[in-house]
Design a protein around this nucleic acid. Structure first.
Lengths: 210, 210
DNA sequence: ACCTGAACACCGTTCAAGT
DNA sequence: ACCTGAACACCGTTCAAGT
């Protein structure tokens, strides 16, 4: 006897909670049902299958991005703010991040950030074709950065400082890696992200002036 | 009675084959054992568990990258060639790509490309700290690009030209997206990849001159 | 309309038994 | 040393039965 009736949003919320608590691998229909105190099959009255549930997770997380756009700001700042807003996902829902970027959404939740980015680029003076290309570059960079931040992509800094793979490497075979081990090991994700973002924005600003 | 004896390489090869034929979701210990004509538990004599098997897949694919480095070439060309070599994974093993980029390897297979990239950047004149930062930017961009190419990350061009999400979007809510639908839909992955790569290389070249 | 248990066809992995 | 079947504790989903 749940206090509130079962519903798609409630099920999605339970999934998000579970992912943040125990990781995406812990998600199962049975487990979520148990968390909600209902039978497994009750879920199927509100969600067609597990895949759709994960789509719901991605949509819900995406729709919570807070874009605070200032139309009067320089376009480079607006692009930067949009990228940073997107990166907030990795802070608010670190363990959902992989789910968000790996789902092929066709809902409006995924289209809104795209619409916004394209509008900003076009207002900066880029043509449609250019804007699309540039957006793709930014998306690739952002997705790749979030995955590293969230520990999916190799960081070369697995767990802790001591007994590290990177630090136990043969200096003769890998002189650079072993020499730069301390730098490879610690990574300020925010400043790394902004560094690459700055490079990209600078590069497309040059592109615009030509 | 298999012709050849069971071995870790043979098991990994079977896994790679299966992934390329039916996708990463199709991988199960039972299925691979069946493909090899042995009992499930026989696999565990050569591989400790499924996770280690997937690590083996990633290592094997990574170790097949062909880096053809010309030490006399301009550093910008060398960086470009290394990035393009990495991208070949997505061509040779499209469905393994997700597995490759999402495994946290500590074997030398993953370290070799890193060593090579750092050496190139340092020979170009970048300091250790800069080289590491720049490498991280490139890795993020490459990983993000490969995931799009392989269909993991949203392309905004799901399946086919007709009946597309992007093309059935409300033009009033999403004027840019619906106006640029044809460009969002078709994507020449190679030229897109090289476009962003060029932007990044140009940006870090500027960085170097300062 | 919503909930549910039983059942089906799967998983990864442990363990004890074989050779 | 290597192989294996039975068993355990899981999966997602279908179906028929309940309210």
């Amino acid at each position: 006897m749940p206090a509130e009736p079962l519903s798609r949003p409630r099920i999605v919320a339970a999934a998000i909670d579970l992912i943040e608590r125990e990781g995406a691998d812990a998600v199962s229909m049975r487990r979520i049902a148990a968390d909600l105190g209902v039978g497994v099959m009750s879920l199927y009255n509100h969600v067609p299958n597990k895949s759709a549930l994960l789509d719901g997770v991605a949509e819900t997380v995406l729709s919570q991005i807070e874009f605070s756009d200032d139309p009067d700001a320089d376009w480079t700042d607006r692009v930067r703010m949009q990228a940073l807003a997107f990166r907030q996902i990795a802070h608010h829902y670190p363990r959902c991040t992989m789910v968000v970027v790996s789902r092929q959404l066709q809902s409006t939740a995924g289209l809104l950030p795209v619409e916004r980015a394209l509008a900003t680029l076009r207002s900066a003076g880029f043509g449609g074709h250019e804007a699309v290309r540039i957006l793709r570059v930014f998306i690739a960079y952002i997705v790749g950065s979030l995955l590293r931040e969230v520990g999916v992509t190799p960081t070369f800094a697995p767990v802790h400082r001591s007994d590290l793979a990177v630090e136990n490497v043969d200096p003769l075979l890998f002189p650079q890696v072993s020499g730069l081990a301390p730098m490879l090991v610690d990574c300020d994700h925010e400043s790394e992200f902004e560094f690459g973002l700055g490079l990209l924005i600078q590069a497309i600003a040059v592109q615009l002036k030509r």
